[in-house]
């Protein structure tokens, strides 16, 4: 399969939105792979964390939008701790989730406000992520 890349894609709306929400510059990444080497969730991912960044650099919107990796990410921030260029992939993963949730609309997934403060205080963040994922019509 040939992939055509163009300027409009590399600097497209989707990529810009992810950059804006995450506050990260994907072009800082020089693809060393350290994030992927240390990520605890790779076994269940379809794209390695470093690949997610690479796809964003190339503006491959569909692949990134539909990847499983963002839902498997444990938000442990190990990737950020290790990245020699200071790229925070956990923030990028979070923005991908946010964009996806916005796209499908509020009724399609759990609402945080349905939970008691007491429950939220002790629920692990991965539980919230899984909760969102579970009720998405993917």
């Amino acid at each position: 399969m040939k992939t055509v890349i163009s300027r409009s894609q590399v600097k497209g709306d989707f990529v810009n939105k992810v950059a804006e929400i995450s506050g990260e510059n994907f072009f800082d990444c020089y693809q060393c792979g350290n994030c992927s080497a240390g990520c605890p969730s790779v076994d269940e991912m379809d794209l390695l964390p470093s690949q997610v960044v690479r796809y964003l650099q190339l503006g491959l919107e569909e692949e990134v939008k539909n990847c499983k990796s963002m839902w498997v990410c444990a938000a442990c921030m190990m990737c950020h701790a290790r990245c020699p260029k200071g790229v925070d992939i956990s923030k990028i993963m979070e923005s991908l989730r946010v964009l996806r949730l916005r796209e499908v609309g509020a009724e399609a997934h759990i609402d945080v406000t349905d939970f008691s403060e007491e429950y939220l205080a002790r629920a692990p963040q991965i539980a919230m992520i899984s909760g969102y994922r579970k009720f998405l019509p993917l």
Binding site: Q31, C32, G33, N34, S36, A37, G38, C39, V42, D43, L47, L48, S50, Q51
Partner: peptide, 12 residues
């Protein structure tokens, strides 16, 4: 030694 191979997209 925990590493990755970005060419084959694998954790190694």
């Amino acid at each position: 030694v925990f590493t990755s191979d970005t060419l084959s997209s694998r954790q190694i």
